[in-house]
Amino acid sequence: MEVRTIKVFTTVDNINLHTQVVDMSMTYGQQFGPTYLDGADVTKIKPHNSHEGKTFYVLPNDDTLRVEAFEYYHTTDPSFLGRYMSALNHTKKWKYPQVNGLTSIKWADNNCYLATALLTLQQIELKFNPPALQDAYYRARAGEAANFCALILAYCNKTVGELGDVRETMSYLFQHANLDSCKRVLNVVCKTCGQQQTTLKGVEAVMYMGTLSYEQFKKGVQIPCTCGKQATKYLVQQESPFVMMSAPPAQYELKHGTFTCASEYTGNYQCGHYKHITSKETLYCIDGALLTKSSEYKGPITDVFYKENSYTTTIK
């Protein structure tokens, strides 16, 4: 009895394709271990004539594949690729409408935090270190965002349907971005203890939790000093293409032309909904596939993004 075979390709990165001759009487799992086709788990399936010449994702289970996976995804987590594939199996079914010149995501599976993050990423200057993220990001900007969303979920250790947080998501993504040249110098002034300067680099240099107003941050924000008295913390120097200011959701007025974009969060910790506000020729609110415009805006804002380049204080 002759062994019926077909020729397929296996890959971990969709760049390096490895030619395989597979036995049609055995499952993919018996031949390769966990195997995925377009995100779908085909591990328990036997090869079919229609699979001839198709590319299958496999887990990096030998040295060659491990090197290829690390170079593309910059992670050695053995569960990463499987999590990416199972997320992709959902995100490829989502709709990605162009809204006001940006790629958004039609609401499904509690994905409003991903839509808000995706919209924000198209408006701030950011370059990702893992080629996987950078490639998928370019495709997302062009309207094909399924891979990018699935990668975000995998890097953030999230599953489809789980509630997510924009600030946490951005923080994970910033860790995989090139923020080497970003720098922030802060000064804390206390009447009792004097003053202390701190220099922050990388992710810490672009994120701040405690106030939404970048102007206020430049002037000074009140913080408790270690001595128990009130101290003032203010920005001395900022070198970065953008800054992200966050605070627990509270009524906040966004003035046209003073910011790049913002995240609105309605609801409580267990259950809520994100919308995205962007400042173009007027203010726009993007909620999944829905767009509304207004000249002014007041609502429960939790993150505001500002364009920056270089700032030095005039406070002496």
Rank of each mutant, 00 (worst) to 15 (best):
T19L: 13
L121Y: 05
G161F: 05
H90T: 10
N147A: 13
Y113G: 03
K275Y: 00
D165Y: 11
Q222K: 15
Q175M: 05
E68A: 07
T260S: 05
T282D: 15
T116N: 11
E125G: 08
L88W: 04
G101R: 01
K218H: 07
E264S: 14
T169K: 03
A154D: 00
L17I: 08
Q251A: 12
E125R: 09
F242Q: 05
L290M: 15
K218T: 07
V236R: 04
Y96K: 04
S181W: 13
M24W: 03
G202V: 03
T169L: 15
R167L: 04
L102D: 07
E125P: 07
K280S: 13
G39E: 12
N61F: 15
M245C: 11
R141T: 13
C271T: 15
T211S: 12
Q20G: 06
A69I: 09
T258S: 11
C271W: 15
T226S: 11
D23L: 08
G53H: 10
T192G: 12
C261F: 01
Q197L: 11
R167G: 08
T76A: 09
F259E: 06
A136Y: 03
F148K: 04
N178C: 09
T314M: 12
H276R: 06
L59Q: 12
T282Y: 10
M244C: 12
L186F: 12
I6G: 02
G210A: 05
Q237G: 08
P60W: 08
P224V: 12
L254C: 05
D109Q: 15
N157K: 10
P131K: 01
E162V: 14
Y72L: 12
V188R: 11
T55C: 08
K92I: 09
F174Y: 06
Y155M: 00
L291R: 08
K183S: 08
M207Y: 06
E2V: 07
L114N: 02
M170V: 05
Y84R: 04
I105K: 02
Y311W: 14
C156W: 00
E162M: 07
F80L: 01
Y138H: 14
N14Y: 13
K127G: 03
P300T: 14
G257D: 13
G143F: 05
Y208K: 02
K219W: 07
I301Y: 03
R167P: 05
T292N: 12
Q230G: 08
Y57D: 00
N178A: 14
N111V: 01
C112K: 04
P224H: 14
A146R: 03
H48E: 10
I301P: 05
I45D: 15
L290S: 14
Y265P: 01
V58P: 02
T258R: 10
Y252P: 09
T313A: 14
S104C: 08
Y36I: 01
V221E: 07
T314C: 15
K275T: 04
F70K: 00
Y172G: 13
C271Q: 15
A87P: 00
V58Q: 09
D13T: 04
Y252F: 13
S295T: 10
P78D: 12
E264W: 03
L200K: 11
M207K: 07
M244K: 02
F174I: 05
F70V: 08
A142E: 11
A132F: 00
C190D: 02
D109F: 02
Y72V: 04
P60S: 08
I105R: 00
I223P: 07
V185N: 05
G53T: 07
Y214I: 10
L151G: 00
C225I: 02
G210F: 01
E308I: 12
Q20D: 06
T192P: 01
T302L: 03
Q195R: 09
V203I: 13
G299F: 03
K44W: 11
H90K: 12
F128T: 02
Y28V: 02
G220Q: 03
L186S: 11
G33H: 00
I277T: 06
K127W: 15
R184F: 09
L151A: 00
L291I: 13
K158C: 04
F70Y: 09
G161T: 03
K307M: 10
G228H: 03
V8Y: 02
T266G: 11
K233C: 14
Y36L: 02
M244W: 11
A142D: 14
T169Y: 01
T35G: 00
A87F: 02
Y274F: 13
N268S: 08
Y172R: 11
S246Q: 05
K191D: 09
E308R: 08
Q134I: 08
T312K: 13
A40M: 09
C285R: 10
Q98A: 09
N309Q: 14
Y96S: 03
L212V: 12
F174T: 00
K183V: 12
Y172I: 15
G33Y: 00
V42D: 00
G39V: 05
N187A: 11
N61P: 07
K92T: 13
E2D: 09
F80T: 00
Y208F: 14
V12F: 15
S240K: 06
C182H: 12
L59M: 15
K280Y: 02
P131R: 03
K316Q: 14
Q230T: 11
Y311C: 08
L235S: 05
I105S: 00
A40H: 13
C156D: 00
L126F: 11
E125T: 10
H276V: 01
Q222L: 11
T258A: 15
I152F: 05
Q251M: 14
Q98K: 11
L283K: 02
D77H: 04
L212I: 04
M209E: 15
C227G: 02
I124R: 03
Y269E: 14
G202H: 04
T11K: 02
G267Q: 10
T75N: 11
G288F: 02
Y214L: 09
H51W: 02
V8M: 09
C193M: 01
L291A: 14
D135G: 03
L200M: 08
H90C: 10
T5E: 15
L200E: 11
V166H: 10
G194T: 05
L17G: 04
V58K: 11
I223T: 12
A87C: 09
V304S: 05
T192H: 13
E264M: 05
C227S: 04
V203L: 09
S25I: 15
E71H: 10
C112N: 06
P241L: 05
L37M: 13
P47Y: 00
G299Q: 01
V3R: 13
L102I: 06
K255M: 13
Q230D: 09
E215N: 13
D62P: 07
G257K: 07
Q31T: 07
G161D: 01
F217A: 08
K95G: 08
G257I: 02
N111C: 00
Q31W: 12
K92M: 08
N187R: 13
K275Q: 14
L118I: 14
V160H: 05
Q237V: 12
T198S: 11
H273Y: 05
Q175E: 11
T226P: 14
K316L: 13
Q270Y: 10
I105M: 07
T278R: 07
I315M: 13
Y311E: 06
L163Y: 14
F56P: 00
C193Q: 09
A205S: 09
H51L: 01
P248H: 10
P78C: 14
S310H: 13
Y113D: 04
V166Q: 01
F305C: 06
L291S: 14
D13L: 01
K293I: 10
V12N: 11
E204I: 01
E168H: 06
Y269M: 15
V99A: 00
E239W: 06
C182S: 07
E168V: 08
I315L: 13
T116H: 04
E52Y: 13
L119N: 01
D23Y: 10
T91C: 15
G161Y: 04
S79R: 14
T232D: 07
E168L: 06
F305A: 07
Y72N: 03
L212A: 07
G39L: 03
N157E: 08
P248T: 11
T43K: 08
I105V: 00
V58H: 02
L163N: 02
Y155C: 00
K307I: 12
K106L: 00
T313M: 15
Y274K: 06
L254T: 09
Y72G: 06
F56H: 00
F174V: 04
A150H: 01
M85W: 06
L173P: 01
G164Q: 01
R4A: 12
L151V: 03
A205Q: 03
L291W: 14
Q237S: 11
D109A: 10
M207A: 06
T313P: 08
C156H: 01
P131V: 01
C261I: 04
Y214F: 09
C156A: 07
L126R: 04
G202R: 06
